[in-house]
Design a protein around this nucleic acid. Sequence first.
RNA 1: GGCCCCGUGGUGUAGUGGUCAACACGCCGCCCUGUCAAGGCGGAGAUCGCCAGUUCGAACCUGGUCGGGGUCGCCA
Length: 600
Amino acid sequence: MYRDYYCNEPNEKLIGQDVKLSGWINKRRDHGGLLFIDLRDRSGLIQVVFDPDNLKENEFHWNQFRSEWVIQVQGVIQKRPEGTENLNLPTGKIELIAKNYKVLNVSKTLPFELTDFKEETDEIIRLKYRYLDLRRSQKYEILNLRHKVVKFIRDYLDTNGFLEIETPILIKSTPEGARDFVVPSRNNQGQFYALPQSPQQLKQLLMVSGIDKYFQIVKCFRDEDPRSDRQPEFTQLDLEMSFVTQEDVLNLTEEMFTGLIKSLDIDKKFNSPFQRMTYDSAMELYGTDKPDLRFDMQIKDFSSLSKDNPFKVLSNTIKNKGVVKGLVVPGGSAFSRKKIDSLVEYTRELGGSGLIWIVLEENPGSDDFEFKSVVRKYLDLDYVKNISTTHNAKKGDMILLVAGENKHTLEILGQLRNKLGRDLDLFDKNELNFCFITDFPLFEWDEENKKWTSSHHPFTMPHEEHQNNITIDNASDIRAYCYDLVANGSEIASGSIRIHKKEMQEEVFSILGYSKNETNELFSQLLDAFEYGAPPHGGIAPGIDRIIMLLSGTENIRDVIAFPKTQSGFDPLFESPSQLTAEQLNELGISIKNPENNSN
RNA sequence: GGCCCCGUGGUGUAGUGGUCAACACGCCGCCCUGUCAAGGCGGAGAUCGCCAGUUCGAACCUGGUCGGGGUCGCCA
C-alpha cells in the first residue's frame, strides 16, 4: 500500500497517529539541518517535516529532494508548534513528521513553473506539456467539475427513463452542414468514412426502433476553423425522445439544467424559470439569436423618426428600404473621443458603413439641452430631443445609430451591444441567465451559393400552419419547432422536433435543392425507416464543453478539455496531424498530391 | 482566405537605432533547525522565432515567412 490518505485528508483527529502518504514534492524549504516540503496530490497539500533526529538512512539523502519528485513518506501526524500554523492550508494546523521515506521517482526540472502566483505560461508550452499543466489545482478542479456535470446528467436521464446507447464513429459523409473529417477505408480503396458532426440520423433511427428515450455523451467532429468556444472535436449530450412536443423537450431541459446547477456547489445565481423569446424578437431587440440577457440595453428603432431628416445618411437609408436603429448607452457621455472612435472603427470592422454617435451633454444647473457629435452640423436639436424623449435617453447618455439594411444593421448593433456590455461592466459575472430561443426560421437564404439552406438541419419539423405549404415561394416565412438554450450570450444547446413522415421530409429536401436521386443516395436510410411507422419525436443536444466553460467561468474552450488542439487544429503534445508512411498510404491506395508536403 | 494583436535565457517581463541585452522567478553551489511565494552569499544560462532588406551600426525600422491568440468568413 502506497498511502493511507490523500494529502489534504489528515486533520487534528489524526494527531499522534502513524500514517503513510504519497505524492509529489510541490515545494521544498531547506533550512540546512531541517527540511520542510509541501507534499501534493490532486486533493491538496500537506507539510512534511524532515528532521535528521527522526530519520532512517536512505539511498537518497533528503537534501537531494527536488520539485516534482514522487515520494512516499511514513511518519507521525503532529500538531504544529504554536505560531507556525498556516491558515491558508486546510491541513495548516498539522504536519507530518517524517520517520521513513522512499523516493518513488525523480523528476527533471519542469519546463515551466506550476505555481499559481506567477503569470500564465505561454499556452503552446503548456499544451506541449499538458500532463504537467494538468497537475495544477485549477486544472484539476475543472476536470473534476466536468466529471460531476456528466455524472449528474447520466444519473438524471437514467432516472427519467433514458437509455445510453453508442452509435458509430465511422459513418457516412453528407453534404449538409460542416465540413467532414474523413477516414480512408483499406478494405474499400478510394472510399471514405466520415466522422459524425453529430449522431443526428442515428438517434432518429433509434426512435423508429422504439427506444423511446435515448441519450449519449459523445464526441462530434467538424472540420471548420476553431474559435475560443469551438474545437474540431467536441462533446455533446445528444438526447432524443419519442411522442414529445417542443414543450416537453424544453421542460426536461430546463429541469435538468436547474437540477444540475443546484447539485453543484458553485457560487452562481441563475434565473428560474428560464426566459423564453422567439428568434424574431431576439434578432429585433438584441441583434443576435444568442442574446446576453444579463443586461438590458435593447436595440431601438429610430427609422420613423429619421425618415424626413435633412441629414441624407438617415433619410436616404429609409427611402431605400433600410432602417435606422441604435442603442442608448447609459453614461456614454463619459466616453473619451478615443473610445468613441474605437467604436466607430469596430463598426467598420463588422462591415457597417458607419456609426453616428450623439452625446447628450450633462449640463449641471441648467435645463438647456445640448449634444455633441461628429455630424453635429447635420443634426438639429429638435431631432435629437425627439429621439431622446421617445427612447428614454437622458443627459449623460450617448445614442449610437447605425443606418442600413435591417438584418445587417441589427447584427452590427448586436455585436456593439455585447462589446459595450463588456467594456462598461454591465453584467454580473456570477450570474447565469438562461433563455430559450424558439421559432427559428426553417430555411435561410445562402446568398453566396444562391440557394436555401436549413437554419438548423434538414430534419426539423415546420410549424403546423406551414406543413401543407412547404414551397420555395414561402420558404422565408416558414417557422420551425426549433430551439436553442442560450446562457450569457452563448449557445449552450440546440434542438428541434423532427419530421417523421417521408413525404414532408422529401419536400424539405427538394427546397434545399436535392434531386430525388440525390435524396435517395444520401438519406434513404432515414426515409426508408420513416415508411415503417416512425413515431413523432424530437430532442436537443447541449454542448458539454460550453456548459463547463459557463460553470467554471473560463473564456476558452481549451481550458475545459484535457487535451485540446490549437487554432490550426494542431495537437502540440502528440504533434498531430502527421504524415503516414509510404506503406500505410499504399495500403489505403492513397497518393499525396503535393509530395513536398509528405517527405516520408 | 481577410483583419487585429503577440513572439527577447527554462518561465514571465523590460528594453523602440549605438559600449559586455536588464529584472524577477526557476536552476546549480555554499551557509542555515520552524519555514510555508523561507532567507543569505555566489554562479551558470539568450547569437532577441526564421529569412531577406535599409543602415557605418538592427532585438528595435521595412518586407516576407513560420508559430500562437482573437475575430470575420465558415460552424446542417
